[in-house]
Amino acid sequence: MQTLIRPAVTLFVMLSVVTGIVYPLAVTGIAKVVFPDQAAGSLIVKDGKPVGSALIGQNFSDPKYFWGRPSATGPMPYNASASGGSNLGPLNPALIDAVKGRIEALKAADPGNSAPVPADLVTASGSGLDPHISQAAAEYQVMRVARLRGLQISAVQRLISDNTENRQLGFLGEKRVNVLALNLALDRLAKP
């Protein structure tokens, strides 16, 4: 047993230095040179100030903007320093009530819309920070946004397709629209 203690302690310390200090610093160093923007969080800069990350969703509740996925983070939605989902089970009455409330909010902002509600627009994402909605969820909101902003429907649809990402390599993931990028593009369009 005693012959085991010295190698155990020294090997533990040595390999800890290699895997716990040298390795992460090496990755940081390489990342800073090769992918500096991504390593720092893919920040979107507007007028010299960061307004968000291209990968992290933001909360939108103004009907003039496209709304993203509902977010279950606390205490406020889209809290990017406390990620998480609702963890509500499929039979939980709290889930049913929450979805009911979200459908009502969508209908209140757009009374004429009788299309079926896309599921991702009324269910909370896993991270609470999902930056995307489905194409169907964007289409569902086109009329509302165009009307409230006095824009042509085709102009809004063009912005959607500009901010749509396809399946990666043709078969990975789902087709999706980046909500923050889309809303920033909308604001640019409105302000000449």
């Binding site: 609702s86 509600v117 599921a119 269910t123 990402e165």
Partner: peptide, 20 residues
């Protein structure tokens, strides 16, 4: 239970999932 509320069932069970 969500389909009964008028949610489109096409996308499946999206609660807790990421769009991408």
């Amino acid at each position: 239970l969500l389909t009964q509320l008028g949610v489109d069932p096409a996308m499946g069970n999206m609660e807790g999932k990421e769009t991408r």
